[in-house]
Simulated scan of single mutants.
Amino acid sequence: MIDRLEKEVDMLERHLKVLRMVIESEPIGIVKMSNETGYPHHKVRYSLRVLEEENLIEPSSQGAITTERTEEFISELDEKIEETIDTLQSMKLDEASEVEG
């Protein structure tokens, strides 16, 4: 169960790194992103597809570019991450046993 969570967090981290590269260097292509991040082409391509499905980027003839939705997503990201951290903290069993004990 935890292994799946770790894999999801790793994938989310990769997606966000790819998004950050698009924001900072748009337009940018798969080869350059792969070379700069060290991620294989297929993983960069998958992250780009996910980001495109979320309407955070779109393809152009020169490479990936941001969309109107990107800025809104970025402005909400820290809050969403903090909410997730709080949820994960509340799930810790050692804290629950301390409260009961």
Score class of each variant (00 low, 15 high):
M1T: 12
M1R: 12
M1C: 10
R4M: 09
R4G: 05
L5N: 07
L5K: 02
E6I: 14
E6N: 10
E6F: 08
K7I: 09
E8G: 05
V9R: 06
V9H: 02
D10A: 09
D10L: 14
M11C: 09
M11L: 11
L12E: 08
L12T: 08
E13D: 12
E13Q: 14
H15N: 15
H15W: 15
L16N: 04
L16I: 11
L16D: 06
K17Y: 01
K17D: 06
R20I: 09
M21H: 04
V22S: 06
V22D: 00
E24W: 01
S25A: 14
S25D: 13
E26C: 03
E26K: 05
I30P: 01
V31A: 12
V31S: 10
M33F: 03
N35T: 08
N35F: 07
E36P: 00
E36R: 04
G38D: 03
Y39R: 04
Y39E: 02
P40C: 05
H42S: 08
H42A: 10
K43C: 03
K43R: 11
V44Y: 00
R45E: 12
Y46D: 09
Y46A: 07
S47G: 00
R49V: 02
V50Q: 07
V50N: 00
E52V: 01
E53I: 02
E54V: 03
E54M: 12
E58G: 09
E58F: 00
E58Q: 14
P59G: 06
S61L: 08
Q62C: 03
G63A: 02
G63F: 02
A64C: 04
A64R: 04
T67P: 13
E68S: 13
E68N: 12
R69K: 15
R69T: 08
T70S: 11
T70I: 06
E71Q: 14
I74V: 15
I74D: 05
S75H: 07
E76M: 13
L77N: 00
L77S: 02
D78F: 06
E79Q: 10
E79N: 13
E83H: 08
I85M: 03
D86E: 15
D86K: 14
T87P: 05
T87V: 06
T87G: 15
L88I: 10
L88D: 07
S90T: 00
S90Y: 09
S90I: 01
M91S: 12
M91P: 00
L93Y: 11
D94E: 13
D94I: 08
D94A: 03
A96V: 13
A96Q: 10
S97W: 09
E98W: 04
E98Y: 08
E98P: 01
E98N: 11
V99H: 02
E100F: 12
E100V: 11
G101P: 02
